[in-house]
């Protein structure tokens, strides 16, 4: 059984965590303002959303190909199921939210401009009602996604600091020996330490 996720998934997880948090903040900020920041934020929102979509698709493929480390055996079944459900929802949001954004702009007749001269094609036909509904859905899912992320973060911290069961470490970069916090102390003591001041000279 693997003790943690493959390196590629771990790197994707933390990169995407930063991108997604930034994206949710950008989305909330751009809707709140009619200042010149609105134009800059919206110009950032579109390419960042497409980047998240591509990374999420890559991650989903990797995730299916490599699986996940098992949850602790003593975790109650209801919590195991909740974890599974929450992760399915997280993946749905990562992939669905950018797609809904793209569809919304398509339906509203907005060009999906990523950079100068690079415009993505529409993915749904023009329809004002569809635009309006997709726009509302985009916002609602964004809030739900943020709530889910807060829950995900809180539960990860509980695993790390209350249960101390190594679940957070499956997404971490600590050396394998340090994975179990109970073992970490003695293991680390074995590491060669540089103590120039206290080492007597020959």
């Amino acid at each position: 059984m693997p003790h943690r996720f493959p390196l590629a998934i771990r790197l994707l997880h933390w990169t995407m965590a930063l991108l997604i948090i930034a994206m949710l903040f950008i989305g909330a900020a751009m809707v709140s303002t009619a200042s010149p920041a609105y134009a800059s934020l919206i110009a950032l929102h579109r390419p960042l959303g497409i980047a998240i979509l591509l990374l999420a698709a890559l991650r989903l493929v990797l995730r299916f190909a490599t699986g996940a480390p098992p949850l602790p055996a003593d975790l109650p079944r209801v919590q195991q199921r909740a974890a599974r459900g929450a992760h399915i929802l997280l993946y749905l949001a990562m992939i669905g939210l950018p797609l809904i954004g793209w569809a919304m702009l398509s339906a509203g007749g907005y060009p999906v401009r990523l950079t100068a001269g690079f415009v993505l094609p529409p993915i749904v036909p023009r329809d004002a009602l569809a635009y309006g509904l997709l726009r509302q859905t985009h916002g609602l899912i964004a809030f739900a996604f943020f709530a889910l992320i807060l829950g995900h973060l809180t539960v990860a911290l509980i695993h790390r600091f209350v249960r101390r069961d190594g679940v957070l470490e499956t997404m971490g970069f600590a050396r394998a020996a340090a994975l179990d916090p109970e073992l970490a102390e003695p293991e680390e003591a074995d590491e060669p330490e540089v103590e120039p001041a206290e080492t007597p000279g020959p």
Binding site: G108, A128, L129, Y131, G132, L133, R135, Q136
Partner: peptide
């Protein structure tokens, strides 16, 4: 904002 409102 106007478009989002009138669209629905």
């Amino acid at each position: 904002s106007s478009f989002g409102r009138r669209a629905v």
